[in-house]
Nucleic acid binder design. Structure first.
Lengths: 368, 368
DNA sequence: TTGAAAGCGCTAACAA
DNA sequence: TTGTTAGCGCTTTCAA
């Protein structure tokens, strides 16, 4: 509000209504019985003056702001927009506003934001940004700000976790079931647990059916469209060329689709593609994308609710950890491998998803 | 912050540093000279106590919150995510946080948000939501909150406007130049000025070269992927079928691509498609999307700067209106019309973009 | 170079 | 049923 502006306060309302500020406060907050007549006069004064309570002042005394924040790593990927929409919807319903902080995958920027948020005495934080040591989040702990994380596991904070291993496994298993045996994997930034868990799932699925594995099938991406596109060119140059690829998110899968089209490879005829996330655009790609879904909207809503509960002290001291499952969504980007190979016979007898076990894995190649 | 938390205030710092709160405040804000030694003690105390100033208290006395808000109609369309990212980047650099309010194309929800924002004494608002009468924004005017709008023209507010007429014209003209004469138009929600301006541009381009126009080439969409997809099915049923389509945004163009693929029509071989917005995914569709660009990132940054200037009182009383131009980005979704028709001869002699004039237009059909 | 004290606009304990 | 008053944690004027 500019400096010269007339500021209407609760005192003005009290004066016009011929009541005390206490009474005004109480009718506004419905926090004690007030005579009908008095109430009416107050409400009229509010109306006449176009009064709106100053929630800063209220926050100062109540020690709550009605604001929660969401720290995300990027807005380039629609995934975070969709997750944010769900969070926003849930918090709006609960009377909270949400501040969106885009850390652009930079730990420094995320830290700067965290500091700002502490200063703003935000009621809670949904942290979906860079992996980091819990130690770096000390300021939050010191200031006791409730925080929940999504798909990142910090020791002392509540979180909703994805079963990334299972997702990677399902995606790969689907391709194996279709008869593919040369399956590439386009990874996300490898420092993240998401990437390594999905990779482990991929590897495990291969191992479980003794499918071959080649280090140069692992193509380093960084979650963005463009890295998927580059991966396509890389893939095309491989000899023999894989007949399928698992991209660790839909954005890279979309880039992959674009890149494959550039080099004249048809999906799924020449190469099957499966993505991860099931962002809303996934059903509108050409061909529509087979992908792994963890129900973004549902997850976001749950995540927000978890924070709200924590803010309201519902959890006492125990840290909440919820892992949500995932499903394979089959669309048009995957198709049976062409040609008949010996091991396909085995499949016709019905290949079932083997039990999940932990294996020793080859390390991811460095990001290109 | 939970109730039981130890709250460290400026008084604690003052006590530990052996100084007055005035001095602490001054060293923290660098707002008057303080003896080196004293300053050091204060800073040490801040460090030791892990003190962070409460910006609510500061906001209450300074009458500024360091918060701006962005009211958008939807997060389903990546356009707003990308615009938001640009705004967020600009405001972060200026020390502001941004609150994102997703009105979901509902005037009621937008109003509810506006009210909340007034209560929060937000420093400024970037309004990119439902078209509405300026009258409905009275509360803002009364509370003197600086507001800028994007692609929506409200009398008393600053705005960055898009040249939607020109964009519609360019898109259509491009198709005409390629020899298309049966050009469909997939519209956005017709109540919006965006939709009607882009439509006027489309119509004008047709008129300028005396190209035919058919009411049933106008297919009502609502800016979403799905409406584009439905439009494709509608298009496919037309006889004779148009050879090109202009979709009023990229999301619908992407839906169109998906739908056309479903009905077995190839783009651009059977039908050329041009979109609008140039969202980042547009270059990764199959085929890559020819579209109209107004440089989202640049626009968002400019928009934010305009608000910041207004907040700082840079404009005095004059309302700012800036119109930004647009460019045609030619990618793979458009191609020359096949077959040779008489009027193509004319084009070989060089069809130039005729001057823009205002015409009387047929009204848009009702939204389906 | 420093500090005391008066607010900023509310809520809520206490009193009437 | 209503009002007085003491904060909430800061900034800033005024005085020393």
């Amino acid at each position: 509000m500019p400096d010269g502006a007339q500021r209407i306060t609760i005192y003005d309302v009290a004066r016009v209504a011929g009541a005390s500020i206490t009474t005004v406060s109480h009718v506004l907050n419905n926090t004690r019985n007030v005579r009908q007549e008095t109430k009416r006069r107050v409400l009229e004064a509010v109306q006449a003056l176009n009064y709106r309570p100053n929630s800063l002042a209220r926050a100062l005394v109540r020690h709550e702001t009605g604001l929660i924040a969401m720290v995300i790593p990027s807005t380039g990927n629609p995934f975070f927009g969709e997750l944010g929409a769900a969070i926003e919807a849930r918090s709006f319903a609960a009377g909270y506003n949400v501040i969106t902080c885009n850390a652009e995958r930079s730990v420094a920027k995320a830290d700067k934001y965290l500091e700002m948020l502490v200063d703003k005495r935000i009621d809670g934080i949904i942290y979906i940004s860079s992996d980091r040591s819990t130690g770096q989040l000390q300021p939050l702990i010191r200031h006791q700000i409730p925080m929940v994380t999504f798909d990142r596991d910090f020791t002392h904070f509540d979180s909703i976790l994805l079963d990334n291993f299972q997702g990677g496994y399902l995606a790969t298993h689907h391709l194996l079931e279709l008869g593919h045996r040369h399956i590439a994997c386009v990874t996300g930034s490898q420092m993240t647990s998401r990437a390594s868990d999905r990779y482990r799932g991929y590897y495990q699925a291969l191992t479980d059916v003794q499918a071959p594995f080649q280090p140069d099938w692992i193509i380093a991406g960084n979650w963005d469209y463009e890295s998927g596109r580059r991966a396509a060119h890389r893939l095309a140059s491989l000899d023999p060329r894989p007949t399928a690829a698992f991209a660790m998110n839909d954005a890279m899968a979309i880039g992959l689709l674009a890149g494959l089209s550039e080099v004249g490879l048809a999906v799924p005829a020449d190469l099957s593609v499966v993505g991860y996330d099931d962002i809303s655009i996934a059903r509108y790609t050409t061909p529509p994308l087979t992908t792994i879904s963890s129900c973004i909207a549902e997850a976001g809503s749950q995540l927000c609710q978890m924070l709200l509960n924590r803010i309201q002290g519902a959890y006492d001291d125990d840290v909440q950890k919820i892992t949500i499952g995932c499903d394979l969504i089959v669309r048009g980007s995957t198709a049976p491998a062409t040609g008949r190979l010996p091991w396909q016979k085995h499949e016709e007898e019905g290949l079932r998803l083997p039990g999940l076990q932990t294996h020793t894995l080859p390390t991811l190649p460095p990001t290109g």
